[in-house]
Design a protein around this nucleic acid. Structure first.
Lengths: 153, 153
DNA sequence: CTCAGTGCAAAGGATTTGCATGCCG
DNA sequence: CGGCATGCAAATCCTTTGCACTGAG
């Protein structure tokens, strides 16, 4: 019950949040951009451009690429370079929450996963210590598990 | 003196190891491939193809790409998709050891880092647990810290 | 002699850009 | 109205491939 309410609120506020973030960067929240956010919000995993276009036939390739750029620059989505051929896109952490990926080395499929908070803190502490010595300013970490998905074994 | 000896020995065995791995895959350890291994062994960070070509003017683009493929398939090197434009290459874990990366979001520079063994074990345990429930067979994890390098701040 | 490896140039494929048009503010 | 946004097609850029040649076994 509580979870359902939160989910609904979150879905609604994703568009509000996206619109607000775009506005701050002096961009409009056009229908094409809303559709992109819808597609990425519906999928519970990062999507490649072909997957995005398949999910909504109203989207065109070049505008999708352009709008993904705008959304990325505005902090609404994140681009991840999981595979060699296609980039993949997912909602940014403020909208989707912190998580990690299982990446199939054979078919390239990606699955979202979560790990415990204590482990997250241990990771950030360890990375932060290493970064400090090199004058590197941490923004966020990415942790992926590469292996074979159930289908490819 | 001692360090020099160790370095020489290590460098030597990297070539031996690489030659052995290639032989197992029925490939030759040609001069061009040795040069690639030398370049990657000298750099203490992953290199993109342009960086590799700059490091050794004897290397040509297409042969470098082809040989990097052969070396990757033989397990000598690893391809990482850290940035959107260029793939990067580094010696594989059996030759270089397990480590992680600092990736500058502005200039794309990559730096190798190490974190403590207990944290590594915690990561593998957490990822393994998540993978198990989905029938995903773990091979290896990748952990990167994205942020700004000292030059780009 | 044979066949993997090489180098050049051309092809391939994902992503970006030019340009004319549409549409919101 | 003015300028961002869109869609098509052409261009770009990284990477791969075709082909003829070289050299090791």
């Amino acid at each position: 019950m509580t979870i359902t309410m939160i989910t609904n609120m979150a879905t609604k506020s994703i568009h509000d949040e996206a619109a607000s973030m775009l506005r701050q960067h002096e961009h409009r929240y056009t229908p094409g951009r809303q559709r992109l956010v819808d597609v990425m919000d519906s999928a519970h995993r990062p999507l490649t451009l072909p997957q995005i276009l398949e999910s909504d036939s109203e989207l065109t390739q070049s505008s999708a690429y352009r709008n993904l750029d705008v959304l990325e620059q505005s902090g609404v989505i994140r681009r991840i370079n999981a595979t060699a051929d296609h980039a993949a896109f997912e909602l940014a952490e403020p909208l989707l929450g912190h998580h990690h990926h299982l990446i199939c080395v054979d078919c390239g499929a990606i699955e979202d996963i979560h790990i415990g908070e204590p482990t997250e803190r241990a990771i950030d502490a360890a990375l932060g210590a290493a970064a400090k010595g090199l004058g590197f300013k941490p923004l966020h970490h990415s942790l992926d598990l590469h292996g074979q998905c159930a289908n490819c074994q």
